[in-house]
Amino acid sequence: MTERRPIRLIVNGRAHEVSLPPNTTLLTALRDLGCTDAKNGCEQGECGACAVLLDGEPMNSCMILAWQADGARITTNAGLGTLERPHPIQEAFADAGAIQCGFCTSGMVIATKALLDRNPDPTEAEIRDALSGNLCRCTGYGQIAAAVHLAAERLRNLPSWSASSASEDGQEPAFKKRVLASDDVTGEGGRS
């Protein structure tokens, strides 16, 4: 009754055929595919650490069943840029000091990408509203909001970035490898 069925997930521009039982969340499916930049924080929809873009819209992957995402295009933080060519949003988070442990960062970057795609010049209030589903325990929201302002400014001067993402041409993001390595150290890689 709860047998596996093959589904197709297009993650960061790469199609994956995976065979999963129906009670698998998209978050678990992504992490099992090695996309451990999507974090498992609460599994309750409260923290946003698991946020991904599903067909361009930001959502909590812990509350989506993987089968519901069959055929969808999914973008995680690692799909936005590479170590050599980080996305301006990723760079702005680093430059603004909006990262400490980094656990919330993937979700924050995804929520920021979704915001700036719709609204290239958000106000402070719009930024705080757009990121209100993302919790951070370490940095403080001031620096994170500053990072979003900085990213918005840089993207307005670099409009080509907002249109394309580094891995949409199927390139493997080098960034992902680093995240994987650090996850293995903390034992995070096996958690689901």
Binding site: L54, M63, S132
Partner: peptide, 9 residues
């Protein structure tokens, strides 16, 4: 209502 991540679902 909630926040963007929940509103989208």
């Amino acid at each position: 209502f909630a926040h963007t991540l929940v509103r989208n679902r």
